[in-house]
Each structure stands twice: as C-alpha cells, then as structure tokens.
Nucleic acid binder design. Structure first.
Lengths: 227, 227
DNA sequence: TACTGTGAACTATTTCACAGCC
DNA sequence: GGCTGTGAAATAGTTCACAGTA
C-alpha cells in the first residue's frame, strides 16, 4: 500500500468524503447568507452533526484552506469547494420520462439554483410528445442522440418506470452520457466510467421503518452524515 | 468487544447493513415478478452490483435464510426482509408543505405501493388551505398535532423551503413523530430518538460532478451499494 | 490563545476462505 | 457439486491528540 501510494500522482480520495463535500457547501452557503464570514470546524460540525476532526480531515485531502487559530473564511471555502466539485460552470442535462415524476423534476427549482439546467426532455408516449413542460417541448426518444451530441451533454436524469429504466440508461450511455441521476426504483447496470446516483424515497422509508420498529431505537452513529 | 457482545440481547447491526436491506428487497421483488423462485448470493450480487459475501454476511445478522447448495427461496427471503424492516403493516404519514414539491410527493405512487400512506397534508399559506390534493384537503399547520395524535402517526414528510424546515421538524418532533423524510435542502437537528432520511437531488448531482470533472474517472468502489 | 493539519491509534466494514450441509 | 454461514484477515474510514502557527 505504501509503495503504490507514493507512485500515485494524487492520493486516492475516499468516496464518502466526496459525498460529504456538497453537504459542507450547502451549510457554508447558509452561513454566508446569514453574514457569517469565518467558521471553525467546531461550529460547522455542530451545524452538520459531524465531528470537527472529520471536517478537517476531509478538507485536508484537497489542500489547506483554514487559518490556524481562526478557522475557515466562509466565502473562500465556498469558492474552493465549488471548484473541487466542478461547479464553476453550468451543467446541462437531459430528462427522460415525463410522467408525474418527470414533470415534477422538470420544474424543480433546486437544480437551476446550483447551475444544473434541464435543456431537453423526452418520452416514449406519442400522447405526450409535442406538449410543453414549462419552456421545454417534450420530444420523442428518437431525438435523444442528436440533442446530447449537439449540446455535449454529460448528465441524464431518468424518471421512467422501473421496467424501462435499464433500456433508457443503456441509450444514455451509448450517447456518451457519463453521469445519471436515477429516480427509477431499480439499480441500473452501467460501465465503470459512468457514475450513477440513485434516488428512491421508498428505499429511504424502508430503512427508516426498521428503526421505528425496534424496541430500543439504536442511537444514530455520531459521524453519520445526512445525505 | 467479545464480552459486551455476549451480554447484548441482540448483536449490534451496522447501519450500512440496514440501508442495504431495502435494496435487496427491491431486487428480490423484481425477481419474484419474473417468476424466479430461488436465487444464490452470487446471482443477487450480480443484479445489485454487490459482492456475494456481503449479501450473505448482511443476511446472517438476522438469521439463516438460505439453503446450502441451493441458495435462497425468493418468496421466503422477501417475507423475512419485510418482517425485519417492519413492513408487515401500513405506515401512515403526514406531509408538510404543499408547494410544487409537496404536490408531487402527495401524488407519488411509489409510497402506496409499499404500504406507506399520506393521510393528511398541511401548509402555512392561507391561499392553499382548503384546496384539495387528490383525496386530501390541505389543512392549516395548526391542525397538525391533533391529526398526528388521532392517527398515531410516526412519520412526517418535510417538503417546505429550507428556511422553514427546522421549525417544522421541531413541531413534528414535539408531536411525537419518530421518523422524518426530509426533502428540504438542509440537515435539521433532531433528538437522538428521531430518525431522519434526507433527500436532496442537488447534493447528489454535486457529488457526481466531482467525478465528471476528474481526468481519470476513479473506478467506483466495488462494494458501493446504490442508494 | 484558539485554532488547523495530520500521523498514529482506533473502530468499522468488507472480503476471504473454508467447514458444513443439501 | 454447489452453495451458505461465519470466524479471521484485510481494508477502509474515523477519531485522537498534539505539533505548529497566526
């Protein structure tokens, strides 16, 4: 292990760390909006329910952003995290599936706020094609490849029924998409260069009911970062 | 460690294991629907992109559900998992916040399918109160406590803006709710007996763009269970 | 003085590998 | 023969604790 570490151009960063950075960023943005300009790992940890040591260690994978004796300058750390996460640009996305769920996703303001933009939406149902969803016209899936190529799109959002998800994911991957936000209640298979983030509220609820059903509700692990 | 293990009435089960069980259940249900009656940890692992050893170890925390030389009977394992997760009943929930997002959540069919039922919805906006959302009438937040007590509700869904989330969560907790599904882009503080599951698609996207921005897209850790 | 950054210690989780059984 | 269940080994992740510094 030691030997291969030394050969690496950059140390391997644990995936859990990556998943926590957006949470740090979210809280820092809230602090910024409150006019807070400096924050210690202690303060930030209290807001996030994460240990200060974990925050410091996580950040130390990427550089030295704090000032000893003081803490972190909020605007600076926000800038650094945005850079690390690749948020210094707009990300265009395609949306597949314009049922109830797709409709809601198309109009979700939380994406645009953070530089994520749905530029085209698709469905297989002839009844839906041509209808407008806000500023977008629903297109037939057959137009998918052309749109992705034209815009150089790298992210697809899947909001189709579970049974159609794998097929749709395969199409996205074939078109060169490298990231998929999957709302379908299934875990699609993708090649290793493609990144998938799954969102399934039913799965989240089912893990919760396990705990609600226990006599003694086991105390949450202290360091457990909220997703 | 050994000593305290023996004293415990039941071994401590890691939280990661709990979070994976619903994924196993989801895939087993799909297999069941396909008419598959027996599955090995190998097969199931391939479907889920999880190692067979992990599946066997996870299940072994709860009992011996397999048959050596054969595998697991799909319907039996489904039944066991449903029991473990506390899904042998209907779970009634309240929904707070009837903006765009709350509206979509109220109509999401994925909940009812799994025995989760939204029995009442609330908002603070007088403009919305009295309007109907499917079978439900939007009520004023002031009616929250009475509804929760009446139905003995243990789960609340939060779909209010980030700025209102903590306040709403506090109210839910005060009413005796023990589980919260939080769609607000913030990590609310709760007492240790309350379980929170957060869903924030922007956070998921931001972790994804980190990877999309890397030159060499680091290979996903093999055992990483999709959420 | 009050904090960060970080090796080292500790803890948790995953994987291995094999005895035991159908 | 093919698979489970599970201790033990290996890895991964977290926390400690303190040197260093603004």
């Amino acid at each position: 292990m030691r030997r291969s570490d030394m050969g690496d151009p950059m140390n391997e960063i644990p995936e859990v760390v990556i998943q926590r950075l957006p949470l740090y960023l979210r809280t820092l943005s809230a602090l910024d909006a409150e006019g807070v300009t400096v924050v210690s790992s202690q303060d930030l940890g209290e807001r996030l329910q994460v240990t200060p040591a974990q925050i410091r260690k996580d950040l130390s994978y990427f550089g030295r952003f704090g000032k000893q004796g003081r803490g972190y300058r909020v605007p600076d750390l926000i800038r650094e995290l945005r850079l690390i996460l690749g948020l210094g640009r707009e990300w265009e996305m395609v949306l597949l599936g314009m049922g109830r769920l797709g409709w809601a996703v198309a109009g979700y303001p939380g994406f645009a706020q953070h530089g994520f933009k749905v530029v085209a939406c698709f469905d297989a149902d002839p009844q839906l094609i041509g209808k407008t969803a806000g500023p977008l016209v629903i297109q037939d899936i057959s137009a998918l490849a052309a749109t992705i190529q034209q815009h150089g799109i790298q992210i697809g959002i899947v909001a189709v029924p579970a049974a159609a998800a794998q097929q749709v994911v395969d199409q996205l991957v074939a078109c060169g998409v490298r990231g998929i936000l999957n709302y379908a209640p299934t875990a699609p298979r993708v090649p290793p260069h493609v990144w998938v983030q799954n969102i399934d509220p039913a799965v989240a609820l089912q893990a919760m009911t396990y705990h609600l059903s226990q006599r003694k509700p086991a105390r949450r692990p202290a360091g457990r970062a909220p997703a």
